[in-house]
Amino acid sequence: MTDLRIAPVDGDAMLHDWQHVHNAIIPTAALSLDEVRERAGRNRLEVAYLGDVLVGCSTVRPPTAEASVATVIARVLPAHRRQGFGGALYARGLAHARKLGADVIETVVLESNADGLRFAQAQGFVEVERYLLPGDSVRFVDLRLA
């Protein structure tokens, strides 16, 4: 894993890479490039590469003035799972969220992503809620770090 490089999204090429990973893992809530740009303005988006190969991305939604809750999401493309990339993305996101003052850490996983649910539970997350967005057919699972 010595060739793993994780970097904040910077420029259109990295926005496209983040979008690709997000949309591959969450096809029921695919985002346009404009939607990704908007998210990059309010969240910390990062992409992970093994050498020059895109392997994953992450999102940190910062805590708000009303609550010291941050959301940390690590996504790894299926071909690159179980190699420690998710753990590296998650550790960076968690450290960033705590630096921003988060006392509570949450994540969200698409219910159909069994690997993602197992990963979140292995990191110490417990399920809080399952919900279906209007027009969707697959539920999201909100989890909170215990």
Results as ranks from 00 to 15, higher is better:
Glu106Ile: 12
Ile105Met: 12
Leu31Phe: 03
Val60Ala: 15
Ala13Met: 04
Arg61Tyr: 11
Val126Ala: 05
Leu50Glu: 10
Arg82Cys: 08
Arg37Ala: 08
Leu50Trp: 10
Arg44Cys: 02
Val109Thr: 11
Val60Trp: 03
Gln123Tyr: 00
Asp17Glu: 03
Gly87Thr: 10
Ser68Thr: 04
Leu31Tyr: 07
Gly51Cys: 13
Val72Lys: 00
Ala120Phe: 13
Phe140Gln: 05
Asp3Ile: 06
Ala122Thr: 11
Ala67Cys: 03
Asp34Thr: 09
Gln123Leu: 14
Val141Trp: 01
Glu38Phe: 12
Ala122Asp: 07
Ala114Asn: 11
Asp3Gly: 07
Gln123Asp: 07
Ala95Asp: 13
Asp12Trp: 14
Val36Ser: 13
Gly93Arg: 00
Ala13Gln: 08
Val128Gly: 05
Asp12Asn: 13
Ala120Arg: 12
Ala114Tyr: 03
Glu38Tyr: 12
Glu38Pro: 02
Pro8Met: 05
Ala102Val: 05
Ala95His: 09
Asp34Tyr: 08
Arg98Trp: 05
Glu46Thr: 12
Arg81Asp: 01
Val141Cys: 06
Asp136Ala: 03
Phe85Asn: 15
Val128Asn: 02
Thr28Asp: 11
Leu145Gln: 12
Pro62Cys: 01
Ala79Ile: 02
Arg144Phe: 03
Ser32Trp: 06
Leu133Trp: 13
Leu145Tyr: 04
Val108Asp: 15
Arg61Trp: 07
Ile105Tyr: 05
Ala7Thr: 15
